[in-house]
Design a binder for these strands. Structure first.
Lengths: 193, 193
DNA sequence: TGACAAATCTACTAACTCGTATTATAATTT
DNA sequence: AAATTATAATACGAGTTAGTAGATTTGTCA
């Protein structure tokens, strides 16, 4: 979803062609190690935006090189962008893959939940190390936004590590509880209250 | 990705049919407010798993009601599951949609970054409130895992709120810096350094 | 009391959007 | 020739929207 709106936002600054959009997006998020957008996504998204009437193909430049299709935002596109600014980012979907993995490692015969935790912790420390290095190398005079983004990542990684410790400490307790079973819902029309 | 492995894990316990898998998954993650899996995703994923030879259709039951297709995990499926347990959850892709939105609100004429922050903060507080309520209502004797998951959510929301404060305090500084521009790369092979 | 409408669960399907992976190509410069 | 940018097509996977159709239970009214 963000790529779609990022394209609209970048086209709101000025018309651009596909590859330029990709470069501008990566500059915005601070490099491809943060968010690697594949060219294919840019082009398919542009096609879909064009189909919805939010952008238009403005011109095709040749200038020696290969063709460049230049896209521009339409009034409908600006409206869409504005309404994106006015709404909050949708709940960030809690979808915690690690939690699912941990629960299943408790449920599946032969799996080792302590090892699962250990593996995850190692990966989190590795990533924390990488991000911290990146943060130290960044220049506050020119890359403040990028630094703030890295700070957020660090805060989340630290929270994840603290949470892992907590879970590990209480894992035996969790283990003793039966796995949550789906509740059997009563069938048929519900009773009048 | 997690749904795919969750299905494998649940089938590793015992053979099940699609609807049962859906119910078991929702029980595992603590209700549809955490992770609402649509039936269609279960069935298409099962089809793909079958095509990859990780599950097999075991039988079709009739028992009065509509057909039930029972699926079971294969040895290859168990191997896939084991290797999932052995690897770490992939870097959680920092893909921060709010950050993108904030940066664009700084770049696009007519947008108001302070308002964007305010909207996001209100949404985060709302969600924190909801989750805290859910946490208080949960029974530690039977829903410890669910409580731990909610704790993780709370920790992340608190981190997001602290980060928002930080960003707001330094927004003028960020504003003064020019937006990161994509470096214009010369075409062709780069010069030797 | 018995027919029937209302509501909900069970089980599954079709068609779509968003994003990723893979591959191909032309142009440009070293 | 090799490297690299610029551009795009095709196909696939993940996830959503919006259903179908039968089964089961409850309410209601003649």
């Amino acid at each position: 979803m963000s790529v779609r709106f990022a394209i609209l936002g970048l086209l709101a600054q000025r018309p651009r062609h596909g590859y330029e959009l990709r470069a501008a997006f990566e500059a915005l998020v601070g490099g491809e190690e943060n968010w690697d957008v594949k060219p294919a996504q840019i082009y398919t998204t542009l096609d879909r935006l064009e189909e919805s009437g939010l952008v238009t193909e403005e011109a095709v430049e040749q200038e020696g090189g290969p063709e460049k299709r230049i896209y521009a935002i339409t009034p409908a596109g600006r409206a869409e962008l504005e309404s994106w600014f006015a709404t909050s980012v949708g709940s960030e979907h809690q979808r915690d893959e690690f939690f699912v993995k941990l629960m299943l490692s408790l449920a599946v015969d032969g799996a080792n939940p302590y090892k699962v935790i250990q593996t995850q912790r190692a990966a989190l420390y590795q990533r924390l190390h990488d991000v911290t290095l990146q943060r130290q190398r960044a220049d506050p005079q020119t890359e403040l936004a990028h630094i703030l983004l890295l700070d957020k990542t660090v805060m989340h990684l630290e929270a994840d590590l603290r949470w892992l410790d907590m879970v590990e400490a209480r894992l035996d307790e969790v283990r003793r509880q039966p796995l949550p079973q789906p509740e059997v819902k009563p069938r048929g029309r519900p009773r009048r209250r």
